[in-house]
Design a protein around this nucleic acid. Sequence first.
DNA 1: CGTTGGTTTGAAAGGACTCAAGAGGGGTGG
DNA 2: CCACCCCTCTTGAGTCCTTTCAAACCAACG
Lengths: 238, 238
Amino acid sequence: MKTIDIKSAWQGNSDCNTCSIRSSVLFAELNEDDFSKIHSPIDDLHYEANSAIYHQGDFAEFLYTLREGYIKLLHLNTDGSSRIVRLVMPGDLFGMEALLGDRYTHSASALSNVHLCRLPKALISQLGEESPRLHRQMVKKWGEALAQSESWFAELNTGRIEVRLARFFLRVAKISGSMAIAPLFKREDMGLMMDVKFETISRALASMAEQGLISNISRLSIQIPNIEKLKYFSQFGN
Amino acid sequence: MKTIDIKSAWQGNSDCNTCSIRSSVLFAELNEDDFSKIHSPIDDLHYEANSAIYHQGDFAEFLYTLREGYIKLLHLNTDGSSRIVRLVMPGDLFGMEALLGDRYTHSASALSNVHLCRLPKALISQLGEESPRLHRQMVKKWGEALAQSESWFAELNTGRIEVRLARFFLRVAKISGSMAIAPLFKREDMGLMMDVKFETISRALASMAEQGLISNISRLSIQIPNIEKLKYFSQFGN
DNA sequence: CGTTGGTTTGAAAGGACTCAAGAGGGGTGG
DNA sequence: CCACCCCTCTTGAGTCCTTTCAAACCAACG
């Protein structure tokens, strides 16, 4: 029997062979032969917005692949303060620390309703021994996570907040024609990403709207009327 | 013939078998058999303080293991600003991006005189195919790099600067008896680590000395008279 | 002994924080 | 269906911390 979190719902075992985002995730390069080696079940789960997937310090038994939605990885400091160290987007792998130690080094929780696959760590390490393709893919995913973490760090933590927000929007925006839409999260969470208080985020959004850099601020998204203008702003601050 | 950088000096080919820090680096778990597979030369190099090891965007041909000294990894943003994303300490591996793409995603330069080993990327990827032990070790190093990057990010970028500095000292200090000594770098570089201007670092150091948290500020190091006091300060800010 | 690169210190300005009040939206119960 | 509550977001005013621009200081070096 599967354990089902109060806030999550089990959607069945995944069929990786027909997975729609398989090309962008861990099993991208695997062939039929490799798949035949998968014996433990891979669960397909839904979580509601604001629910926790795991906590920093929890015993680490699974890795996860995000299929849909957004997840934050939160690092708690000993003094009680915390920072969002990574924003997980669809196709990303997270919780890989499970392969290295037995505890998670940060907490993961859903920023929106999410849909994810849960992979037992034993499965990955066994498979890693047997399939060099998977192993290569693992190393690649580690690398991507590190690169994302570093550039996130470098870009979202320097300059005036309005500039940081601009960079953030450009990073997460979905472009459709000449317009673009960027998701917004709770102001509190956005503050944790950029190291400011939530009031500051709120003020910065208002100010950017006044400058015509963004429009239609709602609880969950903004529109970018002119991407080039925002890009310019993100580089020169005006 | 080896190319020798103006600022660096070639110290000969390394003998990994007898390496004094081998246990803490990439080749920790390799056995005689694995070593026999190493054919390309591993160079042993010295660099002077402030010299560059590679630049962001350079063609990535080598990975490096730091044997002695400190190195900063600098991420340049498109707008010209930059951040130090990682402080490399002895035993750390850096430049692993070489294995994933062909360009370095950040610049590496020496904060002090350094002593390092330069490993051709071809060597590592070949060896990785043949030795599962090396492969495991590689994944482990990636993981460590990511963990360091994340906690660096979370701890050195929240709270008043004095608190950040305290956390920094605790992280890099060498303890000897009841005292401890922490290295200091150029104020400019320390500012880039913690996202403040160099004058602010200077003022924070002066203020911390006044509070008795640190003593003997010199250009390159400080003393910590009472580690517990500094720990308390790093958590509660007073 | 005058440069030079790095560090310290000062004063004023600016950006983010704090505390606090008010507005908006979604959900619940009468 | 409306009133009410709760949670989140917005806005304001004053304070605090960091930045900016400048000047002085210091040690190393030719």
